[in-house]
């Protein structure tokens, strides 16, 4: 008789809960004013940190001025980020206040540990240090409006 056994599958680190939670913590801590961000913004950064190419596009987006508008190829919204957010809230790493996500003190501890290790998440840190807090909620609102109108 032949028996089949299920082999474990390889999973991209982006789908690991801890990894994703760390990304969220970094976005809130390094790229968000008052360590608070909307779901839209978190999804945008989650898309941006997927690949070097996305990061480059996001950096271009962050450099736009009032007069010139830079459109980003539409970013995708993934359920996995929502699951990571649910975990992070349950852990008390972040808090949900009035529809916005805020970094809790436990999350700040985690962020400190991440920042202390210079070998860790190097390209992500470099990216976030480049865009800093330049990608504001208003920017993203404008971008999503632009896409809405484009579809219409």
């Amino acid at each position: 008789m032949i028996t089949f056994r299920k082999k474990p599958i390889a999973v991209s680190p982006e789908y690991r809960p801890m990894y994703r939670v760390c990304q969220i913590v970094m976005v809130l801590g390094m790229a968000s004013i008052k360590k608070t961000a909307s779901l839209l913004k978190l999804h945008f950064f989650s898309w941006a940190m997927r690949s070097e190419k996305n990061m480059a596009e996001a950096i271009k987006f962050s450099k736009q001025t009032r007069s010139e508008f830079v459109a980003v190829k539409i970013w995708n919204v993934e359920p996995s980020l929502n699951r990571a957010l649910a975990y992070a809230i349950a852990e008390g790493i972040i808090e949900l206040n009035g529809g916005r996500y805020h970094l809790a003190s436990k999350g700040e501890n985690l962020l400190r540990v991440i920042l202390e290790d210079e070998q860790l998440l190097i390209s992500e840190k470099k990216f976030l240090n480049t865009v800093k807090k330049k990608i504001s909620e208003a920017h993203l609102q404008r971008l999503s409006k632009w896409w809405e109108n484009k579809d219409a």
Binding site: P13, Y19, V113
Partner: peptide, 17 residues
């Protein structure tokens, strides 16, 4: 990096780690 953050998570006593 994921391995490391898992460790750090465990140090901070996070369940998901």
């Amino acid at each position: 990096s994921a391995i490391k953050v898992q460790d750090y998570g465990a140090q901070l006593k996070l369940n998901i780690a």
